Amino acid sequence: MPLQAFRGPRVWLWRWRRNPLKRRADTVEAWVMLGACLGTVLAGVVAGCAAAGTVGHALARERAERRPAVARVTGQVPGPRSSASGTSAGDRGWATVRWTAPDGSTHTGQAWVAAGAPAGTPVTVWTDPQGRLVTRPASPAQARLGAGLVGGLAGVAAGGVPCLMGLALHGRLERYRMRQWDAEWARLGPQWRRTAG
Rank of each mutant, 00 (worst) to 15 (best):
A101N: 00
P129C: 02
G120N: 03
G197H: 07
A43R: 03
D182I: 03
R7W: 15
R187M: 07
W99I: 15
A117L: 03
R23F: 05
T100Q: 11
R17F: 00
P2Q: 12
V113L: 04
S105I: 05
S83Y: 06
A138Q: 15
G155M: 11
R98M: 10
P2S: 15
M178T: 09
A115M: 08
T96E: 09
P162K: 05
E174S: 12
A143V: 02
A157C: 09
V55P: 04
L169V: 06
K22T: 14
A183C: 04
T96A: 13
L167W: 10
W14G: 04
R72L: 14
R98W: 04
W94V: 13
R92P: 07
E65Q: 14
A25Y: 01
L173A: 06
P80H: 11
L133K: 14
A114H: 10
G79I: 02
R81G: 09
V97S: 06
P80I: 04
Q130W: 02
T54K: 08
V134M: 12
L42Q: 03
V97N: 06
T106L: 10
V161L: 08
E184W: 09
V156W: 12
V113S: 07
P190W: 01
A168Y: 07
G131H: 07
Q4F: 15
G160N: 08
A89S: 13
L149A: 14
W112Q: 08
P102F: 08
T27L: 05
E29V: 06
P122M: 04
R61W: 04
A5M: 07
A50L: 14
W12L: 12
C163M: 14
Q4N: 11
T135D: 14
E65M: 09
V113Y: 02
V11H: 05
W192H: 00
V125T: 04
G56S: 09
A5D: 10
A43C: 15
A36R: 02
T127N: 01
P129R: 02
R66S: 12
P78I: 02
R61S: 07
W14P: 00
S85V: 15
V45Q: 06
G160K: 09
R67Y: 00
N19M: 02
H57F: 11
A138T: 09
E184A: 11
L13F: 14
T135Y: 04
A147G: 01
P78K: 00
G148S: 05
R194S: 02
G146W: 09
G189N: 03
L59T: 13
G35V: 03
E62M: 08
L13A: 15
A115F: 03
V32Q: 07
W112H: 15
W31N: 13
G160I: 10
L3P: 06
G159Y: 09
L38D: 01
